[in-house]
Each structure stands twice: as C-alpha cells, then as structure tokens.
C-alpha cells in the first residue's frame, strides 16, 4: 500500500555520527517514514535515506504534542539494560540493572524517569518494562 509520509522541519544543524544517519541543516524539510521509540526516525530526504534524531525535528503544523503520551506521575516500572552517565544536568546517571519509574515517554527518546528522590532524562533504548506493579 501507499506509505504515508509526515513532513517535519529541521530546527538545528546536525552532523551525522554513523553511516546510516543523515546530516541535517536547520530549515530543511524532511519526510519521515518510520518512528522508532528510541528517538531515531527514518527519513527520506530527496536522494538521501537514513536515521535522524527526532530531537532535531518539529512538525510543520506544530501539533506534535498530540501523539505524545501525557506524563504519568504514578510511574511505570522499568529496568535499565545499560548504564548511562549524565552529561547534561537534567539527565540521570544509572547503572545497568536498576529499577526506575518512567513518568514521561518523550518522542525524542529521552524519557523522564524517577529513582527515589531524583528525576531526570534517560535514554529509552536502555530501558525495558518489567511488567511489575509497584
């Protein structure tokens, strides 16, 4: 069947860091054909095809928020599959195998998680759902 393309505008320059990515220039329009929940989206841009960070795109009509789930302050239990050391001050440092609560699943692949008293952003690709209830 036909593939529905969604168009997005690039908000800042992005230089690709691996061969299956596409370099972006602020103001470019890109057509997205697949959205991975880890924040990498597949774009078809004229002759170029490859993965681009969702964090550098904005929808043309500004109605992106509608597809993003609301924050869930009660939290959903996930476990870290891989450790990550915070680079930005709003990120969280965790080791592999820690149980945390996910409170907001952002489309850019950086979810807001809570560990005890601390909250911060963490890469969704390093998390898996435990299926347990608190």
């Amino acid at each position: 069947g036909p593939i529905m393309l969604e168009s997005y505008r690039v908000i800042a320059d992005y230089g690709k860091s691996s061969k299956y990515e596409v370099t972006l220039k602020a103001g470019d329009m890109v057509d997205i054909v697949e959205k991975s929940p880890n924040g990498w989206w597949f774009c078809q841009c004229e002759s170029r095809r490859g993965w681009v960070p969702a964090s550098y795109l904005e929808p043309l009509d500004g109605a992106d928020e509608s597809e993003e789930p609301e924050p869930n302050y009660a939290g959903e239990l996930y476990k870290t599959t891989k450790g990550y050391k915070a680079v930005e001050e709003d990120e969280l440092t965790l080791e592999a195998g820690e149980t945390i609560e996910v409170i907001h699943k952002l489309l850019d692949g950086w979810w807001v998680v809570r560990k005890g008293e601390d909250t911060g952003h963490y890469p969704s690709m390093f998390l898996y759902r435990t299926g347990e209830k608190k």
Binding site: I11, A12, Y14, S17, S18, Y20, E21, S36, N38, G39, W40, F42, R49, G50, W51, P53, A54, S55, Y56, E58, P71, Y73, Y84, V87, E88, D90, E91, I103, H104, L106, D108, G109, W110, V112, T119, G120, H121, P123, M125, F126
Partner: peptide, 22 residues
C-alpha cells in the same frame, strides 16, 4: 544495517528546545 536504528542514544534536543522535567 540501515533497517535498524542506531544503537547509541540520539542527541538531546538543542538547548533552546529542551523541555523542563515533568
């Protein structure tokens, strides 16, 4: 392969586009 998304976390949004924590 190009069918699989990169295995490294994507970059954070540019600072002026970052949202505050929930």
């Amino acid at each position: 392969s190009i069918k699989e998304p990169p295995q490294n976390p994507p970059p954070r949004p540019p600072p002026e586009h970052r949202r505050k924590k929930a």
